[in-house]
Design a protein around this nucleic acid. Structure first.
Length: 651
RNA sequence: GCCUACGUAGCUCAGUGGUAGAGCACUUCCUUGGUAAGGAAGAGGUCGCCGGUUCAAUUCCGGCCGUAGGCUCCA
């Protein structure tokens, strides 16, 4: 038999017989490696570990520990689950079963639904099949054969998928035992490779993600290469739940919802009020520095205004219905832009007035569908950190970049490191439908924005089909503790609406021109931003944001009076400070204060009263010893003024 | 909006076809203490709401409201 040379990633060259598989190569290196081998990359193509190699090749062996290998394992676990479901529900039909981050899901068309008990019986069946250690075979199929196989199995969704596969693509199916599924692969060589998995949740999901289609039943699950990795992941999910802003927001009395008020309408409790005030103060300081002017606009507006802007046409379903006032339709405002346009046009503008930057922390109302409400992250009443910048084309790049810089300044203050900037572009096929029908303007504006970002050294990814209806935008995506994705900040270009509102400015040659408009909301809605911050800090806010900054804990009631004196002094210095004068022991008071995540504690006993000092105990640090009251005021003031991030022991 | 699950005290949660319980929090009293829980007593609930079945419903059934996990949507 012919000999071929296999080159491994460490550049070592191994001679094998032609027809050798990656699994054989793994075996020749070691038993343990072969046990973990799930797939291989042969000459840059990801293939099954059992695919024969007939020529000299660069081979990368993937175990289920690698990123690619883990995805293969997850995908094969999805197949294993489908096999178990088909065994237990022979009349069900399979649809799709892809891999997502650290998990997989599979959608089934089934009479009825899956219960939690069903999940464990499916898991049991999966274990059975895995134990039988079926070999997994790939079959490349001509289209007609594939259609026949899946038609005979009454897998109508699979037939639909086959019909959608490009004629240039090879159709393949994988068989393990008596189970066959359409799949491009690759898959693990044996069902026995799948050992550590867990089914997580069930839910409904529309076929092809279209709400007009049938709702299928989805099962989510996960799988790992080892028991400990699976355990770690499940533990991580539990820990993430502890950071959930809905849980912490309740524990720390930041906000609440009330059935009688209505869903998606948060009530900010006093602690939340403090946080909002601090955010607004920060926004105002920042916007002053960038020469914004602050405005205010009403909550109600005639429908006419939203007809003109185009919002009513596109978003009527997501707006609260009109109320008839003296025979005219009025709406509660779903966004501030049209009002700001009216402020712009309240007086004639010359090029000397531009850029014209106006901001407002205006409350808007949107009728979000009930099923998409989510704590503070998705609400029906929201305060926007909103502003509009009207500028000439020449000024655009500078203005746009300044807004991006403002985002980054904010993110630095809050210590936000994990985010993604997305340039959302239009989809030409939706022109005149989802998007304003100005093909040249779209291309022109998108090019300017893209170049501006590149010139500004800002990292971004491009997302087609996600633009606003009036222009491209840059969104900043973040993830909640439980992994849900959100747009935190947004920066949008509007080349269309100013025209609709006849907004103009007189240029230096005395001609009327239409300004560009930048919509920007770096702090998102304040609801979402606070929700995000609660999770980001796990409730441990930096001192400047903490609802209570300092808790004074007298060691016994003998020092209560000293405590009140210090409290007054600190209050006069502008701190938010409470005294715990309950007749509890000091250990108990400390515990309660820690649970409330108050960053600074002052322990005041007879020693401190005598010396006119305080003993400081800081969260995550512990006892910091005795300090004079004046020094204390000086230190904490400077920490607050600089808006320092929270202390951590490791720092 | 759609699929599924859930809803008991301020919070976290037990429990039952015969109108309810724990811990924490709260109030009062005792204790006056030194860096994550001192002790005792008390108060607190139309068991989400509305109907139905039943001699009797917090418990079983239905509808509604709300919440959760997804799907869809997000100016």
């Amino acid at each position: 038999m012919d000999k071929i040379n296999i080159t491994l990633p460490d550049n070592s060259v191994h001679e094998h017989s032609s027809g050798v598989t990656a699994l054989d190569i793994a075996k020749s290196i070691g038993e343990r490696l072969s046990m973990g081998t799930v797939a291989a990359t042969v000459n840059d193509v990801l293939v099954d570990a059992t695919k024969p190699i007939n020529e000299n090749a660069n081979v990368v062996i993937h175990t289920s520990d690698s990123k690619i290998g883990h995805e293969v394992l997850l995908h094969s676990t999805a197949h294993l689950m489908a096999q178990a479901v088909k065994k237990l529900w022979p009349d069900s039909q399979m649809t799709i079963g892809p891999v997502i981050e650290n998990r997989f899901y599979y959608d089934f068309d089934i009479d009825g639904t899956f219960s939690d008990e069903d999940l464990s019986s499916i898991e049991d069946e999966m274990r059975n099949i895995a134990k039988q250690n079926h070999e997994v075979f790939r079959h490349d199929l001509p289209r007609d054969d594939a259609i026949k196989i899946f038609s005979d199995l009454n897998e109508n969704y699979k037939v639909e998928i086959i019909n959608d596969i490009e004629s240039s693509d090879q159709i393949s199916a994988y068989k393990q035992g008596d189970f066959i599924d359409l799949c491009r692969g690759p898959h693990v060589p044996f069902t026995g490779n799948i050992k550590y998995f867990k089914l997580l949740t069930t839910s409904g999901a529309y076929w092809r993600g279209d709400e007009n289609n049938k709702m299928l039943q989805r099962i989510y699950g996960t799988a790992f290469s080892s028991k400990s990795k699976l355990k770690d992941y499940l533990h991580f999910l539990e820990e993430a739940k502890k950071r959930d802003h809905r849980k912490i927001g309740k524990e720390l009395a930041i906000f609440t919802f009330d059935e009688e008020v209505g869903p998606g309408l948060p009530l900010w409790l006093p602690n939340g009020g403090v946080i909002l005030n601090e955010l607004e103060q920060l926004a105002k300081e920042t916007e002053d520095r960038y020469d914004y002017q602050q405005v205010r606009t009403p909550h109600l507006t005639k429908g006419e205004l939203y007809e003109k802007s185009g919002h009513l046409d596109l978003y009527k379903d997501a707006m609260y219905p009109a109320m008839d006032i003296d025979g005219t339709d009025y709406y509660v405002k779903p966004m501030n832009c049209p009002h700001h346009h009216k402020i712009y046009s309240a007086s004639p503008k010359s090029y000397r007035d531009l850029p014209y930057r106006i901001s407002e922390y205006g409350t808007c109302y949107r009728y979000e569908k009930s099923g998409q409400l989510f704590g503070l992250m998705r609400v029906r009443s929201m305060q926007m950190n909103d502003a509009h910048i009207y500028c000439s084309k020449d000024q655009f790049s500078t203005e746009f970049l300044d807004v991006c810089k403002m985002y980054l300044e904010y993110f630095k203050i809050f210590g936000i490191e994990k985010y993604e900037m997305r340039l959302s572009l239009h989809d030409p096929s939706d022109l005149g439908k989802k998007y304003i029908d100005e093909p040249e303007l779209w291309i022109e504006t998108e090019t300017i924005v893209r170049n501006t970002l590149i010139d500004g050294n800002i990292n971004f990814v491009e997302i087609p089909g996600e633009a606003a209806f009036y222009g491209p935008k840059v969104d900043v995506q973040v993830w909640s503790a439980i992994g849900k994705e959100f747009t935190l900040a947004t920066n949008q270009v509007d080349f269309a609406i100013p025209k609709r509102f006849d907004l103009t400015f007189m240029d230096s040659e005395g001609k009327d021109k239409t300004p560009l408009c930048i919509h920007r909301a770096p702090l998102s809605t304040h609801e979402r931003f606070v929700g995000f911050l609660i999770e980001h800090y796990a409730g441990d806010f930096p001192v400047w944001l903490s609802p209570v900054q300092i808790a004074i804990l007298p060691v016994s009631e003998k020092t209560n009076n000293y405590a009140y004196t210090i409290q007054k002094k600190l209050k006069n210095s502008g701190f938010r400070v409470i005294v715990d004068d309950k007749p509890d022991k000091i250990g108990s008071k400390i515990r309660n204060t820690e649970l409330r995540k108050i960053p600074i504690m002052l322990i005041l006993g007879e020693k401190e009263a005598k010396n006119n000092t305080a003993s400081i105990r800081r969260r995550f640090i512990g006892d910091e010893g005795e300090v004079s009251i004046d020094k204390l005021i000086e230190d904490i003031s400077s920490e607050i003024k600089q808006r320092s991030l929270p202390y951590r022991k490791s720092e």
